[in-house]
Computed example of a mutant assay.
Amino acid sequence: MSGFVFFLERKGMHPELIYAEIKMRGKSLTELAVDYGLDPTTVMKALKKPSLAGEKAISDFLNIPLHKLWPQRWTVDGRRIRPRWAHLYIKEEAA
């Protein structure tokens, strides 16, 4: 992994850091979308909101697992976490 990248266990990678990492690897979001046969807004949307194809393209390009980029959206075994059912996937730690 190039550049200064860090992860927060529960929050994942900040969208601006994901964007910066893509730029440091020589691509724009539009170029990335074109390379993966997607509309550019699909990839841009993935930085802020769930977007299956956009998230998978970013993850594949950066070679970072989905659950590391967006732990609130993906489980370690690659299953999508639906917001309505997140309580079934995520165990909250007792305070």
Rank of each mutant, 00 (worst) to 15 (best):
K23W: 12
K23N: 12
K23C: 12
K23T: 13
M24T: 14
M24Q: 14
R25T: 10
R25S: 02
R25W: 01
G26C: 03
K27G: 05
K27L: 06
S28M: 14
S28G: 05
L29I: 15
T30F: 05
T30G: 09
T30L: 04
E31Y: 06
E31T: 03
L32T: 03
L32I: 12
A33R: 02
V34A: 11
D35I: 09
Y36I: 02
Y36V: 10
G37S: 03
G37M: 11
L38G: 08
L38A: 02
D39I: 13
D39F: 01
T41I: 10
T41C: 04
T42V: 13
T42D: 08
M44T: 12
M44G: 11
K45N: 01
K45R: 04
K45L: 01
K45S: 02
A46K: 07
A46E: 07
L47G: 06
K49W: 06
K49I: 00
P50L: 10
P50R: 06
L52M: 05
L52E: 15
L52Y: 09
L52P: 12
A53L: 11
A53F: 07
A53Q: 10
G54S: 10
G54A: 01
G54C: 02
G54D: 05
E55P: 03
E55C: 12
E55M: 11
E55K: 12
E55R: 04
E55A: 09
E55N: 13
K56D: 00
A57Y: 06
I58D: 06
I58E: 13
S59M: 08
S59P: 00
D60N: 05
D60W: 00
F61I: 05
L62P: 14
L62Y: 10
N63Y: 00
I64G: 10
P65C: 06
P65R: 13
P65I: 00
P65D: 09
H67M: 04
H67S: 13
H67R: 09
H67P: 06
K68L: 09
K68H: 10
L69R: 06
L69S: 04
W70S: 02
W70G: 01
W70E: 13
P71N: 02
Q72G: 07
Q72F: 14
Q72P: 00
R73M: 02
R73I: 01
R73W: 08
R73T: 02
W74P: 02
W74H: 03
W74R: 04
T75P: 07
T75W: 15
V76W: 14
V76N: 09
D77T: 15
D77Q: 14
G78T: 07
G78F: 06
G78S: 14
R79N: 13
R80S: 05
R80T: 03
R80P: 05
I81A: 11
P83T: 14
P83N: 10
P83E: 15
